[in-house]
């Protein structure tokens, strides 16, 4: 039978998916074991036990200097910045994207500007932000917004302009004004697209969050990683990276599941990401 016709059963699928993970873990454990056998105080590839210990220490033992539980303090600080940044971006994407996609005059006014603005590499704006609004929370959140709002706005504008013109005409024959079309026809159909835009926007949002925290911050997941880098504390860095990955994964899943739950009509066709 040809390879393209060989289907995978469910248990076999899980097994297949586990293989790459298993290979990476086995490779790490053996490499780490080999290095530690030569030099027990090696810091480069710490054992799982020492990583678990370091992670447990960060999560449960108050820091000697600040007295807080560092993992939770870092996570809370980072998530607050991320939520505020991506939330404001989503709001901007709605407030700008819907009129751009629907109303020709507003599209004429803003489309070229947003397309140009979105080409600015956001990280180059960071020094400007530091100078203009200082090193506080505002500059970090602003970086996330600058990095994600333009693409999210364009995604929403595109989704609106791709609504079948038939639906807009039909709404008009039912007596709808522009505002009523936005409220009852466009927005309800855009919500699931906004969830997708947020999920895609979260990827660059994490990058900008960690970058901003690395450069100027006193707490946060990105700050911690770059701080302990000075002591080659791989036993803290690696669990933190895994922790960030886990949070990002859970956020993405939660968004996808909430879209299925709240916008059931949009997922009836099957498929979708």
């Amino acid at each position: 039978m040809r390879l393209i016709n060989q289907k995978v059963s469910r248990p076999a699928g899980f097994l297949l998916a586990a293989i790459p993970f298993a290979i990476v873990i086995i490779a790490y454990v053996s490499a780490s074991g080999a290095r530690l056998a030569v030099n027990p105080s090696d810091k480069l590839l710490p054992s799982f036990a020492s990583m678990a210990e370091a992670f447990w220490r960060m999560a449960t033992q108050p820091d000697r200097r600040s007295g807080s539980l560092l993992l939770w303090a870092d996570t809370a600080a980072s998530l607050a910045r991320l939520a505020l940044g991506i939330g404001i971006s989503a709001l901007l994407a709605l407030l700008l994207g819907v009129p751009i996609g629907l109303i020709p005059k507003i599209r004429g006014l803003l489309n070229a500007f947003i397309a140009t603005f979105s080409l600015i590499p956001p990280i180059t704006v960071l020094p400007i932000l530091f100078i203009a609004v200082g090193l506080g929370e505002a500059s970090k959140i602003a970086l996330i917004i600058i990095g994600t709002a333009p693409v999210m706005t364009r995604a929403i504008a595109l989704a609106v302009s791709e609504l079948p013109v038939e639906l807009l005409v039909k709404a008009q024959t039912l007596g709808a004004s522009t505002w009523q079309i936005i409220l009852r026809v466009v927005l309800p159909q855009i919500w699931p697209k906004l969830v997708v835009a947020i999920r895609l926007g979260l990827v660059p949002a994490w990058i900008f969050l960690i970058s901003a925290e690395a450069i100027a911050s006193t707490e946060g997941l990105g700050y911690r990683i770059f701080l302990v880098r000075r002591y080659l504390a791989m036993d803290v860095i690696l669990p933190y990276v895994a922790w960030i990955t886990l949070i990002a994964f859970l956020l993405d899943r939660a968004l996808m599941l909430s879209s299925r739950r709240f916008f059931r009509w949009a997922h009836l066709g099957g498929g979708g990401l």
């Binding site: 079948p164 639906l167 709404a171 004004s177 505002w179 159909q189 916008f263 009509w265 949009a266």
Partner: peptide, 27 residues
Amino acid sequence: RYSVFPHLTARENLLLAHDFEGSPFLG
């Protein structure tokens, strides 16, 4: 094609016209 609104049930699709008429701001 695309004559009915995918995000509304059959009954909501029919009620939409009167919703427009009933309330200019809330729809």
